[in-house]
Design a protein around this nucleic acid. Structure first.
Lengths: 300, 300
DNA sequence: TTTGCGGAAATACCATGTTGCTTGCCTGAC
DNA sequence: GTCAGGCAAGCAACATGGTATTTCCGCAAA
């Protein structure tokens, strides 16, 4: 059974007349006749009662007619629905994000994107950098909003920078270093350091070690957390200092003090990351929305 | 687009591999490849992302896959559903009935039929004999349960008798004739006669006139009603006598007295009526149920 | 790094089957 | 008898599906 059979059948049933149906369908009358006959043979019961002059639907034919219409409409609706997705006008996009780095950008971006594509469902996933890379690869994510990965991990990935944030030192307000206008890495080195956990953020650890090695010291890691909020809480509790991006400014309020480093470290570059070979329309549109939203890209 | 395209697409999408899908579908790999390409060309967007080694569904392809499955399942379900109707195992049957004549039979018949065919919806229509005949012709009814029509109206119709009822005289209990064990037509003739209305039951009027003409009298019609219940009410109210079938016995109780005629008139033959050329399975089964239910067919 | 090799899809080309057309016949209604 | 309408037969065209072949890309070994 093919849709053609259903189309012909629906036309004949509607007209109750093969010849008129043939005109409407732009095929010959015997052609229709035979298709109907084939259909009846295949399904095993008659759809029409024949008299020499006309056809009349059988009871089964009437039922089949309503069903056939539904099938036909469903088929065209299926194409339409999928086409909307293909054009990126509807669908679903999975976006990974690093909360502490996207605190400022994400709300703006989401608002801009959803305003333009209200039919699109944006699924947000709070993931570690590590997880983002693997899930981009396995296509569970289409886009990741995170720090720019080191070049060796950028194989097959594309990245556009959306913002830069200076690295600053987070200090509890009562801490003896809290009064300073700027802090050197050497001053940080002896203090207990609060950081991200090694498992999820291996790059973070490597980078931090390198920073301190450059001045002949070692980081004094005291605690590891899963995200920025945990780190801030630990710092506020007076358990140590933390090196954090200035993007956290807007969520720490007066709970901890953020003090610039002297000399300044290279800024954190955060942006959108996606699989080069992935050419999903929605992904492109999301990235386009992110870049064109015009965020301040200078270190804060 | 044909169902074949959807079948092939679904198989390929499931296997994510054209060759395996080809094996499953028992067609060659290039055949599938081309059908998929044709489909993509027709709908205007790609369903798969091709790499030399494998296919991967696009986002639109995923959406289309679920829709395609629904279409395919719906198509087979449509056949199944219609087939059930064709076999008379489900569906709908419209049955006309004359309430006063079917009071005894109808409940038994419906119970027997619904017990055997629980999936069938029986739509009952309380109609005059006249309406039943026209609606049988126009196929609004499949079966009519009514008095046997005169031969000249039986053109194209089939009839099986289900019961016979004697014609009796309905009298109010206080009426002076109510004491009699039997009544002659001559005794009825002078009394005001309650009957069915002329418009809906022309045959009834013709027959009644003939009866009285046979004894050289004329019926003294005083009131016309639309059905047995109205007639009984009128008789009970003392407005006159009525000639009614004995089938009414079970609903009049003691409200009116039913007195046999002497000599007895030919009995009323009631039964099932249907269009000869109609060979709807359900109709046949309904008639079969009616005949095999084995109602008492002797005059009561 | 380069070079085969292997697996898988795409392409080319051909045969067959199916669709659809034309013609002609049959039936029932007017 | 004529006409409308459906059906059957025969034929042409086209689409499907098959076989053989090519291409593409990943992978392993030199």
């Amino acid at each position: 059974m093919e849709l053609r059979h259903l189309r012909y059948f629906a036309a004949v049933a509607e007209e109750e007349n093969v010849s008129r149906a043939a005109l409407k369908l732009h095929v010959s009358q015997p052609g229709i006749s035979r298709q109907i006959r084939d259909l009846e043979a295949e399904i095993g019961f008659p759809l029409f009662e024949r008299s020499a002059k006309a056809l009349r639907l059988t009871a089964a034919g009437k039922v089949f007619l309503t069903e056939a219409w539904e099938v036909l409409l469903h088929a065209t609706a299926a194409v339409k629905k999928a086409r909307e997705v293909a054009k990126g006008r509807s669908g679903e996009i999975h976006v990974g994000y690093a909360p502490s780095l996207t605190v400022q950008i994400l709300p703006l971006l989401l608002r801009a994107f959803q305003g333009e594509f209200p039919q699109v469902r944006v699924a947000l996933h709070d993931l570690s950098s590590e997880e983002m890379l693997t899930q981009l690869g396995s296509r569970k994510l289409q886009v990741a909003l995170t720090v720019r990965p080191p070049a060796k991990l950028l194989r097959g990935l594309a990245f556009v920078e959306l913002a830069r944030y200076a690295m600053v030192v987070a200090v509890a307000p009562g801490h003896r270093l809290a009064k300073l206008k700027a802090i050197t890495l050497a001053q940080v080195a002896p203090e207990p350091l609060i950081g991200l956990n090694r498992k999820d953020y291996p790059e973070y650890h490597a980078e931090t070690k390198k920073l301190f090695a450059a001045i002949g010291r070692k980081p004094n890691f005291a605690e590891e957390h899963e995200g920025g909020t945990g780190i801030v809480a630990a710092v506020e509790a007076g358990r140590g200092l933390a090196l954090v991006p200035s993007s956290l400014a807007c969520i720490v309020g007066t709970r901890v003090k953020l003090i610039p480093l002297k000399p300044a470290l290279p800024p954190i570059r955060m942006g959108a990351l996606w699989l080069k070979e992935n050419n999903a329309e929605l992904m492109k549109k999301f990235v386009a929305a992110a870049t064109s939203a015009g965020f301040d890209s200078k270190p804060v």
